[in-house]
Structure formats: C-alpha cells, structure tokens
C-alpha cells in the first residue's frame, strides 16, 4: 500500500527535456530485479554514470539532496514508453514524491498513483513558470487540489478522484476490489450465459 499523501512542500528539481521516457528513468538492464526495493540507485543511471560506472561530473542528479528536492518538474510527455512500474519505484526510492509536467503518460500515471508518487499536469504558463525557477519552493495540497508557487494565486489541478481518495485516506485499491467479489462472480455467470447463447 502506498504512503499517504496530503500535503507536500519542497524545492523542485527541474529537468526541462521533453519525452523523458521510462528507459531514461530506469534503463532496462536494471529490470531483472524481483523486488521493488532499492531502485533509486538505478534512477536516471545512464545520465548519472559513465560507461565505467563513475559519476558524471557536473550532473546535478548526483549532487542534489533528494530530501530537499522532492518535486520533479519535467518537460512535455514525461515517462512515455514502457509499462514498467520500476520507473515510479525508482523515482520514489530516489526521493521524489511528485512529478509535474504538461503531459504525463497514461500507464506511468496509473502506476505512480498506486505507489504514492503524485503526477500532476499543468498548463503551459504554469509549466513555464516552474521551469524558469529551478529549486523554487512549491507546495502541493492534494486535499484542495492546488499548487502553491511562491506567493502567487494557487493553481488548481485535477487527480482521478478514486486515486486521490486512496492517497489521502490510505485506501487499498486491491482490498477495495476484493470486497466486490460478489459482483465479479455475478458478472462471470452472466457473461458465460451470454456467450453460450
């Protein structure tokens, strides 16, 4: 079950590049794991380390304090590509709790929400404002669905209501589905009859 999420105030970490795909977030050769743990070490690995595994000098991802920068602001079309849930696992383990972009891939969004990493899409103007101020202080208020940037008027955002509920109240989505066993069984019977007709 994901960690609860209500409010988060943090500095941003900005990667302005568009279409940061899931192979950048965690290269495929790190997917041979059978665990969810410890993937932060592989987050953005090929951006952080050279061919010999030495940290690339000047790469900001190697020097930030992840506790200080928990909100990733990324370019358009963030996390396109594979369905690997290892991508949100890696970002969370690295220290991020939220990602802001103008568009975020469907499967990634669904995966991230199930793990307590909040994906937020904003309009171009807000995005430009966030890109222009790396390490700016931002507050995400999930209960009010508002983004607070500096002293400016809050920016509203939307999150799928059920996923939001799960994050705020710690609802367990699988548990919720399991409670609906009767409806699932009834469906299976109905469908079997229809197909036999």
């Amino acid at each position: 079950m994901p960690e609860r999420f209500t409010q988060l105030t943090s500095r941003t970490f900005v990667i302005p590049q568009d279409s940061i795909d899931t192979d950048q977030i965690i290269p495929a050769r790190f997917l041979t794991t059978t665990s969810r743990e410890g993937l932060g070490a592989s987050a953005f690995y090929d951006w952080r380390y050279d061919a010999n595994g030495a940290p690339i000098p000047g790469e900001a991802l190697n020097s930030i304090d992840p506790q200080e920068h928990r909100i990733l602001v990324a370019g358009d079309n963030f996390a396109c590509g594979s369905s690997r849930e290892h991508a949100p696992w890696a970002l969370l383990d690295y220290g991020f709790r939220a990602v802001i972009s103008t568009s975020i891939a469907d499967i990634f969004t669904s995966n991230a929400l199930k793990n307590g990493l909040l994906p937020i899409t904003v309009d171009d103007a807000t995005h430009a404002r966030l890109l222009a101020e790396p390490a700016g202080r931002v507050t995400i208020d999930l209960e009010a669905c508002e983004l607070h940037i500096g002293n400016e008027a809050p920016v509203p955002f939307t999150v799928e209501p059920f996923a939001r509920q799960c994050l705020i109240e710690g609802v367990d989505a699988l548990g919720w589905l399991l409670e609906r066993r009767d409806a699932i069984e009834a469906y299976e019977q109905r469908r079997a009859q229809e197909l036999a007709a």
């Binding site: 369905s83 690997r84 849930e85 499967i107 669904s110 995966n111 199930k114 793990n115 989505a173 699988l174 589905l177 399991l178 609906r180 066993r181 699932i184």
Partner: peptide
C-alpha cells in the same frame, strides 16, 4: 498495465 495492476488481475 503496471505490476500493481498485474496483482489486481491475478487476484480478482
């Protein structure tokens, strides 16, 4: 689907 959803489908 992602791995959490793989779990949902396996179980339900």
């Amino acid at each position: 689907i992602g791995t959490s959803e793989v779990g949902h489908v396996l179980a339900t």
